[in-house]
Amino acid sequence: MIEFDKEKCTGCMVCHKVCPHGVISMVDGKAMPVNIDKCIECGACQLNCEFDAIKVTKGVGCLFAIIKEDILKIKGKGCGCGDGSG
């Protein structure tokens, strides 16, 4: 899930610049999702927004990570790829 707060958005464009899937565009000087189906919820926009205008349900879109972290509640194990360091 990705949510934009129009009131807080100042139109600085940083979210538009950092998005790796071209999901965000500027409409009337405000950030808006235009390709929401392409959003992978990586959280780059939320992390780099200085005005707290974006909320992303950030997580690893991977079966094994979700089973470990959300179902089995094993925190900090990540998806298992790359050292398992979460």
Partner: peptide, 24 residues
């Protein structure tokens, strides 16, 4: 298909979570 979510560059946490609940 569900395990390929982690191998692809287009999976999305919220959608994968829903898929797991429905399809696993």
């Amino acid at each position: 298909a569900l395990s390929y979510t982690g191998n692809s560059a287009v999976s999305n946490y919220s959608r994968v979570k829903k898929e797991i609940v429905s399809f696993l």
